[in-house]
Design a protein around this nucleic acid. Sequence first.
DNA 1: GTCCAATATTTGGAAGCTAAAATAATTCGG
DNA 2: CCGAATTATTTTAGCTTCCAAATATTGGAC
Lengths: 162, 162
Amino acid sequence: MSFDPLAEAHRQWSARWPDQADHMAAVTSVMRAQQLLLSRIESLLKPHGLTFAAYEALRLLAFSSTGSLPMGKMGRRLLVHPASVTNVITRLEARGLVTRAPAPHDRRVVLASLTPEGRALAEEATETLHRDRFALAELSARDARAVTDALHALRVSLDDID
Amino acid sequence: MSFDPLAEAHRQWSARWPDQADHMAAVTSVMRAQQLLLSRIESLLKPHGLTFAAYEALRLLAFSSTGSLPMGKMGRRLLVHPASVTNVITRLEARGLVTRAPAPHDRRVVLASLTPEGRALAEEATETLHRDRFALAELSARDARAVTDALHALRVSLDDID
DNA sequence: GTCCAATATTTGGAAGCTAAAATAATTCGG
DNA sequence: CCGAATTATTTTAGCTTCCAAATATTGGAC
């Protein structure tokens, strides 16, 4: 009874380009899964006034031993463009969740630091995500690992690793 | 020798919340895979002057029997917000790849139609993507299917299907 | 037959991402 | 020890997403 638009696209593609259909379907699956997950997670975070990007930045700072990190390092860890870090930190700073200051040893570097409010919010938001297992409450741990493993192979093939 | 920031995140998460780590890693994998794929595919499409969103709209029209579809239907097929369809069609129309006209039977409905130039570009772009197997040339068909299957389970758990 | 509710699209605004150019600070070569 | 190259961040501009509000059209109730 279930209709899967993705399976439908795969069939259509198969009819014309049989040797491309599996790769097309993999790409489409990734795009769709990301879209669904992002939307679920953002609605979990919305009550805290956080987007996913903002949550990740806060979480990263909360994980660091001192609660502060250089902007550039954050971008590399989060795998986003430096300009995106500037963007998100600017908004967090305006809300008093983070402060910004030049690093003592190298004044080109800007250090973002968690305020107590920022740390508290990061923990609340993490609890919310945990309650719903990152929106994947209905997925078994085994199936979650299958996703990670399959995508590991994909990332290797895209040179994300090594 | 390989360092995988994702495996690292999984380890850190495991140390504090062992029963959440697999789900967190699955989410992070999806986000990262999408980011990588999108970036590869957009560089393949760039020479044609297309973004991935624009390519998908063009491809959808090219697949339809008449080469034209109502805006709303396109949004539902592509699983994006109506406003996004307006946005992308506006840009394609400005380039002469698509035309827009009210539907005869219901003048609220706007029909987007492929021009000959639009159809030609859709085919060229598809050929380019095929040459690199949607940026997944290095991935075996078996591994591609594993991705689709694992994400199928994820999508089912998110009620994307049924 | 007219008015009201539902449907289709567009508009405007907030956020994200990227790439490329501009600014500031540091370090290295001669 | 001074100027050039490098590095870190921000700015600007373009594209994408979504949401919410506005606009237009249709169809049903009375």
